[in-house]
Design a protein around this nucleic acid. Sequence first.
RNA 1: AGGGGUAUAGCCAAACGGUAAGGCAACGGCCUCUGACGCCGUCAUCUCUUGGUUCGAAUCCAGGUACCCCUGCCA
Length: 560
Amino acid sequence: MTSSEQAAATSNNFLKTIIDEDLKSGKHSSVVTRFPPEPNGYLHIGHAKSICINFGLAREFGGRCHLRFDDTNPAKEEQEYIDSIKESVRWLGFDWGEHLYYASDNFEQLYQWAVYLIEQGKAYVEDLSGDEIRAYRGTLTEPGKESPFRSRSVEENLDLFSRMRAGEFPDGTRVLRAKIDMASPNMSLRDPVLYRILHVPHPHVGDAWKIYPMYDFAHGQTDAIEGITHSICTLEFESHKPLYEWFLDNLPVPARPRQYEFARLNLTYTVMSKRKLQELVQLGTVSGWDDPRMPTLAGIRRRGYPPAAVRAFCELIGVGRSDSWIDVSILEECVRADLNESAPRAMAVLRPIKLVIDNYPAGQSEEMQAANHPQKPEMGSRSIYFTREIWIDADDFMETPSKGFHRLSVGGEVKLRNGYIVKCTGAVKDEQGNIVELHGEYDPASREGIHTADGRKVKGVIHWVSAAHAVTAEVRLFDRLFSDPSPDRGGIDYKQFLNPGSVETLLECKLETSLAGADIETRYQFERMGYFRQDPKDSQPGKLVFNRIVTLRDVWTTKK
RNA sequence: AGGGGUAUAGCCAAACGGUAAGGCAACGGCCUCUGACGCCGUCAUCUCUUGGUUCGAAUCCAGGUACCCCUGCCA
């Protein structure tokens, strides 16, 4: 555990304080939370925060966390989303055990409770149209007025509601409403809609229902049925809390859950709304929901972010109630911290230029051992090969070096990582003056260390790959999807901030031979270049494709 | 006749009337066969603001200010 994780792990937040007190006072004997997505899209990094909070709290306090699909609006929901949500939660490292639930499994109970409310004179069937309901609702500063249908008899309401269920009426013709207070300053208490007619099949319960409960009528009661003790949601549900409690107060529910709200995650340089993400997919701006540049869990998974790094990130950013913007670089830093520990090192040349070692015999090949991790000998080593012709990165050569550049230049020398010190003796150019090949000489006595035969220390160490042994691969370098820190700030079309250089595809990269048989899941550090993993969709044994997960920190190029 | 929230460093964030944790970033320096990693050090006389209570206030009280959420038959 790094010091940052330690600090974060011990750091307090208001939810832990509440649970701690509830447990100590005996209000609850154990904690039960739930992660309740609607299966209407793919999960993103913002959901990861909620997943980590809910499952994390349950884990920390020895309770349990349910996975519950809040599937009350079949018009938007699909089995595909149910499957992908389960997969993403598992990928993140959480397990709901036996506790997989669907709000729709409670539809009959919810219906009975609606009937109960009607019998109590606390709900009525509304015949007003949607537009009329809106007009009657009033505004933020003016009270609403009561519907003429508000005073229908219990008998008529019961009859109409059962006929709604039976499918007698077309969509949109009637709704069931709670009779609360049309003058409440809280809009959600102005006779909220409980049920609407929807002749739409449901992904989980099929075509059993023609009416479906609204979120507000389902959520709290479902929490109560499942025995949820702490129902944790985001801040925008705060104004629904009085309604959440109104249902619990007016219905014979088996338990009394409490709702608590936290601030949702905002990340810089990306967009998080489902609508915008969907638009990027539809427009073809990205290759799909799992494009490695997307903030979706499917995307960062494909990109290669380790789930443990995402968990560490969620722990690090904390839980509060103030609107906050987290810089993506913090997420990236968590990814680096994780990968630095676990990723085996390898050498790969991304923008190859040939270096011919003139004093090395043609046809000779020397096998060398390279450590897989500089600080972890237990991770072993692999063979690399030194030959007369090698590839080095074009970025590691400057004909006339700028101040502070300590890589290769004509007349200069560098250490070839895990190999020899080599001195550049010249650059070959084509007619246009482009450098096409470098020549150099090696020092046979310089295998160990970075000191020359005469005791000088070379400043630069660069990576390289034997030309005779290299395997060619495609490498995709990703950058932020947007060039602005908050592309979805109001007023301006977020698409105008799209970063045209968010992906760069390099087709002729030269990798060391050990990478030819690389495991598809293994994440590597290509030394000095960053962390990489094979693209799980596009990489094949004969045609390798690597994704750059994240760069290394680089003070040299950021300073320039 | 509006209501409900939130303000602590560049970004997060702790503190629960006892004298401003921690992380990220930044800036110095050390180490290094990755300009990586690691290590050492610096970084709020002060908590949006104005008053008040108190021996003592980021914490309590009163008044301002800024931002967020709420007028779906979405969740």
